[in-house]
Computed example of a mutant assay.
Amino acid sequence: MIISKTPLRISFVGGGTDIPWFYKKYPGAVVSTAIDKFVYITVNKKFDQKVRVSYSKTEIVDKVEQIKHELVREALKLTKIGGGIEITSISDIPSEGTGLGSSSSYTVGLLNALYAFKGKHVGVQRLASEASRIEIDILGKPVGKQDQYIAAQGGLQHIKFNRNGSVFIDPIILPQKLMYKLQSNLLMLYTGLTRSSSSVLKKQKSAVIKSPKKLMVMQKMADMATDTKHALEKGKLNDFGELLHQNWLLKRQLANGISNSKVDKWYLIARRLGAIGGKICGAGGGGFLLLFAPGSRHAGIISALKDLKKVDFNFEAQGSQAFYV
């Protein structure tokens, strides 16, 4: 049996500039980190030549082409596995609409496990590139590339998306004490709201391509990723928090659905109680509210936002890993 363990992620600044329709005209950039919440995929040889896939549903089919789970179907086709296999998955966090990149972590982890099943070791760039190809090129999802690359690579990264489609990963290396302080000032709260990232991103694309002003906003967000990297490397955490805030204000301008009245209220309360910056993780609209605030202010914020669930997390240095059991 093969088990893969692939981290979810938090995107701090620049999210949305990793989408092909943007970075093919203007280079995109994000600052993102893997976290210690994972998607686990198990792959095992089946006694017959059928394919069994277990997720929220269970499928047993004779041919790969019959699989309804599109990520599994396309990953099996890409890795040229025709049958005699069973695949299961579980996640530490709800997998739909939470803004932590779970679908891309699933795809990266699945590819990693399938290649291990075939006795092959595949590097970070290939895992991320092929996961991106499945989601964006083959399935036509209106998503970006940051999730696949951070899931494969792990760590705290400044990731650049170039016009020619290449991706540069630049690690942000911080002293251990500074990394701990950064982590301890971050607060992640589950809103209970879920949404389709595809729907939000389609609205964003439609709004931005019609508005030169909104296109300039996205360019500013990409530039802020570099500013964020420099602020972290200089140990200026309050500047990091302010950049997080400014990025969220910019992102809210792009399209309806990125925020809503509930999110705006929660964020305003958190700011009044000492949060320097924050954002909704992922495309927007729901999922997790991420806040940057001095640790001494966390209890007050949690008490005021009692309808939201605090979720503890740490940064994760490792990307997707596959184990033989």
Rank of each mutant, 00 (worst) to 15 (best):
T17L: 08
D18V: 07
F22L: 11
K25L: 14
S32G: 02
S32V: 15
I35S: 07
N44Y: 05
K46S: 12
F47P: 00
F47Y: 11
D48G: 04
K57F: 15
K57Y: 14
V61N: 02
E65Y: 06
Q66N: 12
K77Y: 00
L78Q: 08
K80Y: 02
I81F: 08
I93L: 08
P94M: 10
S95V: 14
G97N: 10
G99Y: 10
S102H: 00
S103W: 05
A113K: 02
A116M: 09
F117T: 04
R126H: 11
S132Y: 03
E135G: 08
L139F: 06
K141N: 13
Q148Y: 02
I172W: 14
P175C: 08
Q176G: 01
Q183W: 12
S197P: 06
K202R: 12
K210V: 04
S211N: 15
P212E: 13
K213S: 12
K214A: 06
M218F: 04
M218L: 14
M221A: 15
T226D: 13
D227N: 13
K229W: 06
L232M: 05
N238G: 00
G241E: 03
K251W: 03
K251C: 01
N256C: 00
I302D: 05
I302N: 00
A304S: 12
A304I: 03
S320R: 03
A322E: 04
